[in-house]
Design a binder for these strands. Sequence first.
DNA 1: TCAAGCAACTGGCTTAAGCCAGTTATGCTC
DNA 2: GAGCATAACTGGCTTAAGCCAGTTGCTTGA
Lengths: 257, 257
Amino acid sequence: MTRSEAFSQQPASRRIAQALRTAIERGELSAGAKLPSERALAEEYGAARNTAREAIRLLAEQGLVTAKHGRGVFVREPQRLFRFGSDRYSLKNRETGLTPFRLEAKRQGKTARIDVLGITREVPSPDIAERLKIRDDQETVVHRKNHYFADDEPVQIVSTYLRWDEAQGTLLMQPKAGPHGIYGRLEELGHVMTRVRDEISARMPTPEEARLLGLPPGVPVLEVLHTSLDQDLEPFEVSRYVHRADRTGLLYELPVE
Amino acid sequence: MTRSEAFSQQPASRRIAQALRTAIERGELSAGAKLPSERALAEEYGAARNTAREAIRLLAEQGLVTAKHGRGVFVREPQRLFRFGSDRYSLKNRETGLTPFRLEAKRQGKTARIDVLGITREVPSPDIAERLKIRDDQETVVHRKNHYFADDEPVQIVSTYLRWDEAQGTLLMQPKAGPHGIYGRLEELGHVMTRVRDEISARMPTPEEARLLGLPPGVPVLEVLHTSLDQDLEPFEVSRYVHRADRTGLLYELPVE
DNA sequence: TCAAGCAACTGGCTTAAGCCAGTTATGCTC
DNA sequence: GAGCATAACTGGCTTAAGCCAGTTGCTTGA
């Protein structure tokens, strides 16, 4: 069976989607361009409106287009990625007084904003407890939940977990942690970050995450479960980053040992 | 507006989806369990079959369920992830004679298989050319395309790019590159890997990638654009990994410099 | 010239009905 | 007990029709 035979034997919705996809890939529909409406596509391909609609939905699911209620369907524009290098933990960045997020936002000429959504004492989930080497049957962690924006666009959600017994009564319990953020406080408590462990995965967002991050269909999230180790190679902080995958790239440069 | 008000004001397909999602999260529908059929859900919720079908589609898009033609819709089972540590490039792994992929497959009691789909001389794309520091207007690279399986299940697609002038006439042009794979040959050519750079992102798969990896809807891919640097800190190999995100986790452990 | 209202466009969502194709279970026959 | 055929189940996909809600553009009046 030739390719065009395979094409013609596909359901109409997939054929319409493929034709549109090809137009996008060939540049006939450039980034930001508006697609023909559902009704126009239905007429053009001799299909029902719902069939054309299904074709557009397939493209949205593949991350190629975004539908906007009452306005149209647009080819998604590639976003300039927020790039987080493995040097984002480096002490030399500390000298700028800026966190990695603020540094990257500045590099892109954008205004960083961090909303502290909550600071609560909690029983840790098993995966956090395991990494912080604490019990998971008592309220042994402080959970700081932050929401990061660049020019008012949500980019990432970060949950940071610290040991309660260290954090209680310190600025770690406050929205504003003071100079150099939480790492400054943790260093004063004797934890100098010497090594880090990042566990990286990708998945589709939960509805709540999609809502918080303003994600359209077809955009996954990049999750980083980060553990900071101190001079004794003991874990002292765990953070879970949930990044919009259409806005975030990670970069690791490391020696081969 | 209370949460239940927000719930009741949602379209029926989303309410049905949320109810099913809650049942999954509460364990009432455990991993591997079969959901009620479209027709049964339609009757149960007093909706049209297509409305129930849309609800199931939403769950599939969120990566929670998988529909199987003629059989039913099943709660997706969490897969044991293929975990690739940053030490996968380490020389000490070389002593085992096994590549990182084979090591991980062995750890999980699975049979690794690598299909070499092609070895071709090509003009590199700009992003590859830039990283290998070669021209992108001539056929200056060898492109090795491999497909990796664990117990006959596709896990990743890897495209490796090497300089043509180094690879021509060597085992690098053969499916079987000899002891220690391509890195053994490259070392013989004077390239000892000392540093690596991994650029990590996530996105939805192209239809072709979805086909090759056997991906159901709602599963993104994790892409790693890997560059190997030698003892002179010169790039000598670039590989693009496309991993099934439901089967792959990456781990980076590194010092803070 | 500006603002407001309305028509026409757009996508969002549902319904009823139907047919196709894959899978499973049951019953019957050998 | 095994195998085959068929019915009933399942999901896949389409159609026609309709209504709702958001947006845009045009017209009219002040």
